[in-house]
Design a protein around this nucleic acid. Structure first.
Lengths: 168, 168
DNA sequence: ATTTTATGTCAGCCTTGTTGACTTTCCAAG
DNA sequence: CTTGGAAAGTCAACAAGGCTGACATAAAAT
């Protein structure tokens, strides 16, 4: 099919033309648009943006996480995150509790309203992911995940892996 | 390995837990950051943004394309694209020629300087993609591409496919 | 007691998206 | 031929969400 050689072990040298790589780059570009399209519509209706989605996602993932923790996962500045977090707290979607052990820390939780919003967003995103996975089949999914993981920066990969299994 | 069933034809029903899907979603999030990281650094040095990269990429891909064409590929408003295009034209990276048949149209081309910039950006992005492809192996790459394509919107997929082969 | 850490806030900047209003050009219907 | 609409592009203004820098506060660590 493709002009590639190798047994698939990941050790072999592949002949990768600029053309093949360009297709991968463009596929990534268009797919990411699809990936964010459904949540974006919901966010837009409710007056929020993608930044709010990311915050809700990771607070849902790791309830009680601190601001600093979230900062390093999201890779933005605290000022940037703070703007988003403040609107979520003011609107009653996120609760910020002062740490019991270390009172400097704020632990973040979704309120029932925030949890419902998060569910709406992730339901939409999962539905698309599920459809794509089903259309492509399990072997393709494994490959998809391998390539994505190899594309991350070392730091990001470490974060992804620590989230990956520790999660729920 | 994963709790999935099916023969891999893409027709079978898979058991996809929310957990598995969430991992895919997070992988997509972190991988996209890696995907854009290298070009972003170069762009930043030279005082441009990601929007400039996208414009350069697709003008390089299809020299002589019209603004309208580019608009539908990029999925932004013409006003948004225009700002980016203007700076590229003013800085001598892109040339805009008035259409000979239809004088309303502007046909876009990279200047030598623009072509060099585009090369620097795509070299960086291809290098990462190549490394990821090599690390994951050819079977994984095929799966990667399948899932990405299945994740696109119908429109986006049509555009991707028409670009995919017609290209160079 | 001093320094470091975690967090929050104000001010201001940039990129890149948006809408609305406008010009120029083309084409087609009267 | 003219006129009216559609299409391509431009200008102006606004918003979201990145960024930096400076500074405040409280708590923890030294």
């Amino acid at each position: 099919m493709d002009k590639s050689a190798g047994s698939g072990s990941g050790e072999t040298l592949l002949f990768l033309t600029d053309e093949q790589l360009r297709k991968g780059i463009e596929a990534m570009f268009f797919a990411y648009r699809g990936f964010t399209a459904d949540p974006d519509r919901i966010l837009d209706q409710r007056g929020y943006g993608r930044a709010h989605h990311r915050a809700l996602h990771f607070i849902h993932r790791a309830p009680g996480t601190t601001v600093n923790n979230l900062l390093s996962i999201l890779g933005v500045t605290k000022q940037s995150l703070n703007r988003v977090l403040r609107s979520l707290i003011d609107d009653g979607l996120v609760e910020s509790r002062i740490g019991r052990e270390d009172k400097r820390e704020r632990h973040l939780f979704l309120t029932p309203v925030g949890a419902e919003m998060e569910r709406a967003l992730s339901d939409a995103q999962r539905a698309r992911m599920r459809a794509a996975y089903r259309a492509a089949g399990p072997a393709a999914v494994a490959g998809f995940r391998q390539v994505l993981e190899a594309m991350m920066d070392t730091e990001q990969r470490a974060q992804f892996q620590s989230l990956r299994d520790g999660g729920s």
